[in-house]
Design a protein around this nucleic acid. Sequence first.
DNA 1: GTGGTCTAGACCACC
DNA 2: GTGGTCTAGACCACA
Lengths: 126, 126, 126, 126
Amino acid sequence: MQFNEQKSIYLQIADYICDKILDGTWPDGQRIPSIRDMAVQLEVNPNTVTRTYTMLLDEGTLQNKRGIGYFTGDDARRMVLEKRRNQFVEQDLPALFKTMVTLDIGVGQVGELYMKYLEEQNHEDK
Amino acid sequence: MQFNEQKSIYLQIADYICDKILDGTWPDGQRIPSIRDMAVQLEVNPNTVTRTYTMLLDEGTLQNKRGIGYFTGDDARRMVLEKRRNQFVEQDLPALFKTMVTLDIGVGQVGELYMKYLEEQNHEDK
Amino acid sequence: MQFNEQKSIYLQIADYICDKILDGTWPDGQRIPSIRDMAVQLEVNPNTVTRTYTMLLDEGTLQNKRGIGYFTGDDARRMVLEKRRNQFVEQDLPALFKTMVTLDIGVGQVGELYMKYLEEQNHEDK
Amino acid sequence: MQFNEQKSIYLQIADYICDKILDGTWPDGQRIPSIRDMAVQLEVNPNTVTRTYTMLLDEGTLQNKRGIGYFTGDDARRMVLEKRRNQFVEQDLPALFKTMVTLDIGVGQVGELYMKYLEEQNHEDK
DNA sequence: GTGGTCTAGACCACC
DNA sequence: GTGGTCTAGACCACA
C-alpha cells in the first residue's frame, strides 16, 4: 500500500479499515486480518498496525476476542458513517469554503470538476 | 497569534504570510518585518520565523537582501495564488469528492451548506 | 572531523556525505547513520546534522523512511556526480579561466603544475 | 553591478577594484572614486564601500590623502598581481585539481573548454 | 529506537 | 540594525 507523506501511517491504516467497513467488504461483526497479517500485507511494522487497532478498539469501531482475533464492531458501519459525516460537515467543508472564497472559486466550477471526477471514476472502474 | 495544534507553527506562519500577500497587505517586492520583529509580534522563537522565511525563500515567495531584510518576491502574489489553486484542485477537491461519494452526499446538499456558510460570514462581518 | 572555518559546518557535512556516496562507501539506497549517531561521530550538534540531512532530502540526494532513518537516494550517485560536474564546468572553470587570462598564465604552466600535483599525491599515498 | 550571492559584497567590490588596477584602468597613484560616488555607482550602502576601502588601505593596495580622496597605491599593480598569483597557485589550483581527480576529468578536456572560453570572450569583445 | 519541532541563547559577518 | 549559523536541551509523534 502507498502511504501519503503528510499523514501518519497508522491513521491512514485506520482510514483504510473504515473504507472497508463502509463499502461492505467487512460487515459488522466480521473478523478482520490479524495484526501480523495486516502488517505483512501493508508492508509496515506490526507496531504500527497495533496502534491503529488499539485506537479503533477504543472508539468501538473494532472489537477484540481474546486469543481469537479482531472483529469489526457490532455497530461499526453506522459509527464510521456518523464519524465521517461529522468530520465532513464540521471540519472539511468549512475549511474548503474558506479556500473557495479566498481563491474566488465558485460553486459552479466545483460542480463541473465534480462531474469530471465522477466520469474518471467510471472509466477506472470499467 | 493563536496557533493550531495540528500543524507546525512554522507552516502556520507561512500560511499567515501568504494570506498577507494574497489580500494585498504586502504587495510584490514589499519589505516584511525582520525575523526578530516577526518573532516578537507572533510570540515565537526567532529560529521558528527563520525556518519559515528560509522555506519561502527557497520557494521564491520571498526574497532577501543581505543585511537589509526580507521582501516579498517580485511575483509573489501570482505564485501564492497558483500554489493554493493547485493544492485546492489537485488535493482538496478530490478528497472532498471521494468523501461525498462514500457518504452519499450530493452536490445539492453541499451547495446549500455553502450558502449557509456565506450567510454566516456575512453576519460575522457586520 | 575537522571543519574548515570558511564554510558552514552543515555544508561541509553535506560534502562529506556526497564524498561517501561518490566513492561507493554508501551505495544507492543504503541506510546512513541516524542524526544522533552522525552528530556524535562528527562531534557537532544534532541540529546541525538535521540541517544537512534536510537539505540533501530536498535535493533528492537522500531519502527518508519515517521512524526508520535516512537512506541515500535511489539515484544518489549519479545525481551527486552530475551536481559536481555542473559546479565544476559552469562555476569553477570559468573563474579559473578568467584568472588565467588576467594573470597571463597559459595552459602549459597549469598542466605542469597539475603533473606536479599528481606526483605529490602519489608520494603521500605511499 | 550584479553581485554574487555566495561572497560578501565588500569582497566583490575589492575584486572589482583590483580588476581595474590590473587591467590598467587605474594606474598606480591614480585617484579613484570617492566612497559616496562608488556607493551610488554600485548601488550599495556607503558603509559597504568604506569597508572595502579600509581593507585595501590596510593591504597597501589603496592609499588615502586626507580631505582629498582615495588613490591606488604607488606599487598597487605589482602587489595585486602577486596576491592573485599566490591565491591562484596555492589555493585555487590545488582545489581544482582535487575536483578533477574526483570527477575523473583530464587536462585535455579542460584545455578544450579553455579554447572554447577564449573564443566566447573574443565574440563578446567585438 | 527514529526523526520533527520548538525554545533559549549565543556569536558572527555583514550592510 | 540585519540575517546566518551553531549549540544545548527539551518534548513529541511515530515505527
